[in-house]
Amino acid sequence: MQFPREELFAPGHRGCAGCGAAIVARLLLKAAGKDTIISNATGCLEVMTTPYPETAWRVPWIHTAFENAAATASGVEAAIKALKRKRGKYKDKKINVIAIGGDGGTADIGFQSLSGAMERGHDMLYIMYDNEAYMNTGIQRSSSTPFMAATTTSPAGSKIRGEDRPKKDVAMIMAAHGIPYVATACISYPEDFMRKVKKALSIEGPKFIQVLQPCTTGWGYPPEKTIEIGRLAVETGIFPLYEIENGEFRITYKPAKRKPVKEYLKMQKRYRHLTDEDIERIQKYIDEKCKLLGL
């Protein structure tokens, strides 16, 4: 048996067939276990899991707003500390405080709240489930949308060819906060992601994991390809898997030979406007990035 059998994320949620965010939540809870409190930002995951009176969560869970999952989790963490110390609550149990938000809720609107929480040193793990656009509102670009991807607000037109800015590197910005643990992960590598969650939770202080999760609706591919596409993102070097522990950078998965980005791009509708020239440009950009990381 490779994976823990306890299901803390219940079926019956309203995620699309093949939803990558649901896989994030399920794997996350398998790694974290039941002594966990989740602070969830507004977004797909929050909406699809909690239409009153139904919840997919079997751990204590709170949602307050879009831009403040980290600030809300700060309050939860502080309260646990105070209640343990002053009133002997939770009987010395170690409780994992985990904030989770999408790329919009993390890299854009929740960025200040996240930076504040990380800088203040709260004992919490922040999970950014990255599907590279605002999927809940219907696929609008976020700062985490990659170069040339088409979204409803960065459409592929005759003058502008999809997103005109490169993907914001949130994991590296978090690393610049000097926090003890930062990692990237992808749902297509569940052992790697779960190991990183467990490691993060074993470290005291602020931790950050950015997990890539392909989105069938937003990226435009058949639902059975969610894992395959995630794997290609890693195999092409488009989304490198690494961790930074106490400032030390380490690649956690090195493809034997990087696949051409074309294999990844051609499977998705959001890139279907790309010409061979465009793909060449992206390949060059990724080659340079990978060189920097030693991939």
Partner: peptide, 22 residues
Amino acid sequence: YIKVESEHSAMSACIGAAATGA
């Protein structure tokens, strides 16, 4: 004492703390 980076986070943190029972 949480030295938050904005009033929005001040109220968010108070909500998180109060929702935990503090």
